[in-house]
Design a binder for these strands. Structure first.
Lengths: 133, 133
DNA sequence: GGAACAGATGAAGAGACATTCATGTGTTCA
DNA sequence: TGAACACATGAATGTCTCTTCATCTGTTCC
């Protein structure tokens, strides 16, 4: 067997994952598990932006965006600084950007089969660099 | 740049993230957004395992585990092959393992506050968590 | 002070998700 | 063939999450 193999991406230390850590990691990864927040982070990766502009860019309502920003803030993924009447948001640090990039990269390269819940017998080929079987 | 910088991790191509892709990525990342699935994947990263053993290892009921495995299967993250009366599960390919490692690595570093040069508005390590309501 | 802009926040409704219970399918062996 | 084992699957349920609506705080400028 032996399916595809990821090529780049440096090998990071392989951390142990106990039940406690799993909860921690899962909790943070949930921040990347929604289109809206993913778009927010992706926009911020390209540079700081005031809340309202950000909301407009990702196409969400001010309130909804603000709620998500609070979540991301509490997770320590983004920071907001008051500047006049606006609050400029930006990614907290490079770990966030890296995490984002890695996630997008790997996901894009997985042979995604879509169809999350129910049905679907097996993944179907689509955009994948690994299609062996 | 803004704050700190993650050191290892090869620089992967910076993919564009439109609304469509965001949904795709988010959908897959959701697989990593739950402790149970995270534990399943982490265990499989260390080698293939029959469903029942796997369930026992991660401490979940057979049924619950099976449900999650189906989800992971449909997402193309794991594969299961019948061997006698058991079905041996394993990660689909290296992208999955890499994604897992990168995710864990970055998340662990985010929470530890190892993010170096923070200029002002930075979250306190230990305060950042739980904001859902 | 008052008006207008920028953002945050609480409550509520809709939807999604994970787990459990009970049962169904497939396989080995007596 | 039938019992026992290994998984899968459907339904029901409790829980959590995202979004919208209305409102409130903070800031700038007249």
């Amino acid at each position: 067997m032996g399916h595809g193999a990821a090529q780049p991406a440096a090998s990071v230390p392989r951390a142990r994952l106990d039940a406690a850590n799993a909860a921690k990691v899962a909790n943070t990864l949930q921040a990347l598990a929604t289109p809206s927040r993913l778009l927010i982070l992706a926009r911020l990766r390209e540079g700081p932006l005031p809340a309202t502009e950000l909301a407009a860019e990702v196409g969400m309502e001010q309130s909804a965006c603000s709620h998500q920003l609070r979540l991301l803030r509490n997770l320590g993924l983004v920071v907001g600084t008051r500047k006049g009447r606006s609050v400029v948001y930006s990614l907290y640090d490079n770990h966030v950007a890296e995490l984002l990039d890695q996630a997008i990269y790997h996901v894009e390269h997985l042979r995604l089969g879509l169809s999350d819940t129910s049905d679907a017998t097996s993944p179907e080929p689509g955009t994948a660099d690994a299609a062996a079987m």
